[in-house]
Design a binder for these strands. Structure first.
Lengths: 118, 118
DNA sequence: CTGCTTCTTAGACAGATGTCTAAGACCTCC
DNA sequence: GGAGGTCTTAGACATCTGTCTAAGAAGCAG
């Protein structure tokens, strides 16, 4: 998969799960897989859970890096992956960069692979 | 992960608090990530969707391999990954091996990642 | 302007991953 | 038993990935 994340709106209204609706086509499966890859990493699962559990619905890198026990650069890389997948948003405020989870994007991804949806 | 591959049993049913319930601990996140990695591949997403959409809830390798356009060996490898993650079951009947999706395992995995769950 | 903190980018490197071919294992039918 | 189909395993190989260090970019406080 030497391919960058395609810019496609996964947060849109998907009401049925393609995964259970029939044999999924290749490009469709690729998009789903690329987004799944974005969370399919222990560090990124932790980062995502921290963001989802954050009091104000956001957290800055300065808090996240020590929390996962990795370098600033490595954490920035992971957050960049989540950003590219549309699972988080980022906003610079002063010296810090604040990350927020995109709950609807995550929900949409989940719905796509849910065998019980619809 | 600079260290060697951690040995974690991923075969059993996943059972841990959802990603939104609080900062997820490292071993917990690892288990979730390993299972997600199992589906985070375009070929395996397609295989999973074919199994979920199969008329009798199962399909044999001889049908799946040509359907995804890859070698028997490669498809066997992918199905092996899904098997190790507990997302499918396999049963030899005569000359063929029949694979069935484990819907509850997939649902359980989804529930852990669902930000709206609990 | 000069430091100091925070974050991103670039480069490097070990380890993991997806794919293939080749060979073995399992099964059926003649 | 032998021929042939189906599936897994082993080995090889190119690519991808997660991590680090080092260096740049952005911003605040003296």
């Amino acid at each position: 998969m030497p391919k960058t994340l395609p810019v496609v709106d996964v947060t849109g209204p998907i009401c049925c799960s393609p995964v259970g609706a029939g044999a999924m086509a290749e490009p469709e499966a690729l998009e789903v897989a690329l987004r799944l890859k974005a969370i399919a990493d222990p560090t990124r699962v932790r980062l995502m859970s921290m963001l989802l559990a954050a009091p104000d619905g956001e957290a800055c890198g300065c808090d996240l890096a020590p929390a996962v026990g990795l370098t600033d650069a490595t954490v920035s890389h992971h957050l960049g992956q989540l950003l590219k997948a549309g699972l988080v948003t980022r906003e610079r405020r002063g010296m810090n960069v604040w990350y927020s989870p995109d709950r609807s994007a995550l929900s949409a991804l989940i719905r796509v692979i849910d065998p019980d949806c619809c």
